[in-house]
């Protein structure tokens, strides 16, 4: 069951020194699964996530043969129609809750605004829905949190609030861009469990963008490994440790490990051929 089908996606940024290709011909599909996208900063993973929502702003240029959401090509949609897709059918959770929540609105007002924008309901119903959503992401004392401002929240709570907000319209696809990298390990687990439940219970498709290989290996079903704007390898997450591409192996080996002490960490030796090789397709 394919929810999303991306074919030959390019993102380009014209500059004084010629056109810079940030994403170069990426293709993949997403079913009702947890799809991980990993790579270093600058590998194009976040831009890939953003382009699905067509959030690349000029001077950036994005092209694709198709980005189809259950058969509808998003590339053909007008900006006005896209607004009905963003948030409603495909939601995105950004990396840092500090920069994604409005600092001068209470949490409650923000969540209710999001809900009332998409649904014709009164404030009372919106309030009840917002409290319900905060409970769904296991926030204790949701009524108190509704009255609070973002700066009164810890990072983990902020991130859970973001997820609650994204889930209100019950989207079919959630794109999570490094949702846990600003969080501590113990809080990280909670946030992942919440997203995991959503995939299982609501049958949502999840695109999980991260630079943390171990996390992706544990959490996702399938992984795309990106390097210099291309997918260099696609594999099942539980087989990530047996990955064949030297780039993936290099990334795995550069991690310090508690169970295997080493005097020196391996440093990734980059091969120019990696960025030349054509993109591997992540379509099923």
């Amino acid at each position: 069951m394919t929810l999303l089908d991306v074919e030959n996606l390019w993102v380009k940024f014209p500059s004084r020194h010629g056109v810079f290709d940030a994403v170069r011909g990426v293709s993949f599909t997403l079913g009702r699964e947890r799809l991980g996208i990993v790579g270093e900063s600058g590998s194009g993973k976040s831009l890939t996530g953003r382009s699905i929502l067509r959030l690349i702003r000029p001077p950036g240029i994005m092209t694709a043969d198709q980005i189809s959401l259950e058969g509808e090509d998003l590339m053909q949609k007008s900006e006005r129609d896209m607004r009905a897709v963003r948030g409603q059918r495909i939601s995105m959770v950004m990396q840092d809750p500090k920069f994604s929540l409005n600092p001068v609105m209470t949490i409650g007002a923000q969540i209710m605004e999001a809900y009332m924008l998409h649904n014709a309901v009164n404030k009372k119903a919106a309030f009840a829905k917002a409290v319900e959503m905060l409970e769904a992401v296991s926030i204790r004392a949701p009524e108190r949190v509704m009255r609070a401002y973002p700066h009164e929240m810890s990072g983990g709570m902020g991130q859970r609030i973001m997820i609650a907000m994204m889930l209100i319209p019950n989207p079919e696809i959630l794109i999570a861009d490094e949702p846990t990298s600003a969080l501590d390990v113990s809080v990280q687990r909670q946030v992942l469990d919440i997203m995991d439940n959503l995939v299982k219970e609501r049958g949502m498709g999840l695109i999980f963008i991260s630079h943390d290989l171990n996390l992706v290996a544990d959490f996702c079903d399938r992984v795309l490994i990106m390097y210099a704007g291309r997918i260099v390898e696609v594999c099942d997450a539980d087989k990530l440790r047996e990955a064949k591409h030297p780039y993936t192996q290099g990334l795995l080996n550069s991690l310090p490990r508690l169970d295997e002490p080493r005097a020196r960490l391996e440093v990734l030796q980059r091969d120019p051929a990696w960025s030349e090789a054509p993109s591997v397709s992540g379509r099923i």
């Binding site: 270093e40 990334l251 991690l255 310090p256 960490l265 440093v267």
Partner: peptide, 14 residues
Amino acid sequence: LDVSVQAEILNLLA
């Protein structure tokens, strides 16, 4: 930093 860069910096510090 990225994991690959982290390895370089940790080696340097050591």
